[in-house]
């Protein structure tokens, strides 16, 4: 699983960072999302999905990396 973030859509809510600081970070300049771990381990998948669902603007999306991952 690969995480992608849309920094244009991001509203800077800080929610992703507050839930999963090991995966997400936030710019000090504009408060928008930064990715610390673009390809987290399988054990993180459920948590990342929860965070993506909470994002107010849907700026976090998850993508299969290859056929096996899908």
């Amino acid at each position: 699983m690969e995480i992608r973030v849309d920094r244009e859509r991001c509203a800077g809510s800080s929610l992703c960072l507050s839930y999963l600081p090991e995966v997400f970070d936030q710019s000090d300049d504009d408060g928008k999302v930064l990715l610390r771990t673009p390809v987290p381990g399988a054990d993180m998948e459920e948590a990342v999905r929860g965070v993506a669902a909470r994002c107010p603007t849907g700026a976090i999306t998850l993508h299969a990396r290859d056929a096996q991952d899908a």
Partner: peptide, 17 residues
């Protein structure tokens, strides 16, 4: 909205808070 909000969001980051 994007232009104005972007100037403010840096004031409310988790680190700043």
């Amino acid at each position: 909205h994007t232009r104005l909000r972007r100037m403010l969001t840096g004031e409310f980051t988790l680190r700043r808070v």
